[in-house]
Write a protein that binds this DNA or RNA. Structure first.
Lengths: 118, 118
DNA sequence: CCGCATCCGTTACGATACTG
DNA sequence: CAGTATCGTAACGGATGCGG
């Protein structure tokens, strides 16, 4: 549990997700529906194993993701979004819309790839 | 300029803003219209001076904020949002909406305070 | 004073090796 | 295959300095 910096909802959301990786995990789950640990590792951004494990734990604690088979072992047991996780997609989409409009002048190779819920 | 992790727009946006502070600067500018360096320091989250200076520089580089008096010295010269900065507000608002719905169970004292463009 | 820059201890990150 | 342990590096954050 973070040390909440203030009572502001935006600030508090950033206390939980204010990092470079959490929303990419949400993105992968939105694109593919379910995803295993090793599938997350294959995303083009190449997250390292300790960071992935740490983020998955936080996202589980805050009830954004859960294992598909809730009481099986985690081996080969993929993750999926909860309702709360699905409700984070507007954030990811707003970032996408902004980035596609304003980042191409800074990032030549930036290209559109979709965020789709399956 | 960051080392872009991939060509994904979301990932690239996070390469720029994937931290706990940048969106709070955007929030303060949205709430108050303009804001000086020392006014940012008075926000309840208590950012430290070196981090504030660093974030302001990045936000200026990416054309999200600018000084109100474009060719005056920076002493007492407040910042304001550019068009690009204003277009980041949907991200902040989406975070807010999500936080107000899902964070109260984790953060008792969380309370609504507005994001308004003046 | 106000807007930073510098210093420096502490924390977080990230690559790799390793374990059940 | 799903994570831990380790360890070097980078970022953070508080204190302080400094020029205008």
């Amino acid at each position: 549990m973070p040390d909440w910096r203030s009572i502001c909802p935006l600030s508090s959301a950033l206390d939980v997700f204010g990092d470079k990786w959490s929303l990419l995990i949400i993105r992968d789950l939105a694109m593919y529906g379910t995803r295993t640990y090793s599938e997350f590792l294959n995303a083009p951004e190449k997250i390292s194993t300790n960071i992935l494990a740490s983020r998955l734990k936080t996202l589980e604690e805050f009830l954004l993701i859960e294992h598909v088979n809730s009481d099986a072992s985690s081996r080969g047991n993929p993750y999926k979004l909860t309702e709360s996780g699905v409700d984070l997609l507007p954030v990811a989409i707003a970032f996408r819309v902004w980035a596609l409009k304003y980042l191409p002048e800074f990032h030549e190779n930036l290209s559109d790839f979709p965020v789709i819920i399956k």
